[in-house]
Write a protein that binds this DNA or RNA. Structure first.
Lengths: 103, 103
DNA sequence: CTATTTTTATTGGATAACCGATAACTATAT
DNA sequence: ATATAGTTATCGGTTATCCAATAAAAATAG
């Protein structure tokens, strides 16, 4: 299960201005694995080149207006693709019960 | 925004037994783009080789028990990574308003 | 002000994801 | 039985994703 990295990064940055390390740590908290610098910084550079984020003297990244528009579009795409989130959540719980019985 | 394909496929198959074409059409409905046969069938083969899905005479795919466990684990991962879905949804709406003003 | 550590960033390369083109198989019709 | 249409599947190659290793820059300590 790969991808979605730049989407998550845009989302995190939109919530709060963050440094590269901040982002890596927040992703670790969510996914369990901390992305390496070789993952984070090229992604930040890519987003910067596309004009979606900007960085200040403190190495803190924030969204540009274009970044906000891009995030909006990606959020729409996300909720379109996962249009049955409630069902997914319910399934998640019921599967947990089912699988328990067969261990 | 790539990836997540096999996750979506497991999820769709778990809801209803499906053929390759069924899956492609459902993904088209959600994402807008219909994945090509060269995307769908290798992915199905991969999942079959891993013992996560099985296929019957009618070319209809269903989850195996291992597939259900795998789906559970991926659902947990998904909701762990996107632990703030409500916030994302709210942001999606408010961004739509903000961006409108600047067109 | 130098040395050390920490953070930020780049590079090269390995792997995975994906598609276009094409082939094989199935089903239906003639 | 043969042709046609549609579905299922494979293959080769392109691009994207991601990491390990390394370098550069910044912060902190001595």
């Amino acid at each position: 299960m790969k991808g979605f990295l730049s989407f998550i990064m845009l989302w995190l940055i939109s919530k709060k201005a963050m440094t590269g390390t901040d982002i890596a740590l927040e992703i670790k908290k969510r996914k369990g694995t901390k992305p390496s610098p070789g993952t984070i910084y090229p992604a930040l550079k890519y987003l910067r080149n596309k004009g979606l984020i900007k960085v200040n003297q403190k190495k803190t990244y924030t969204l540009t207006r274009a970044g906000k528009k891009e995030l909006e579009s990606q959020l729409n795409f996300f909720f379109g693709t996962f249009c049955d989130l409630d069902e997914m959540k319910a399934c998640c719980k019921s599967l947990k019960q089912q699988n328990k019985r067969y261990i």
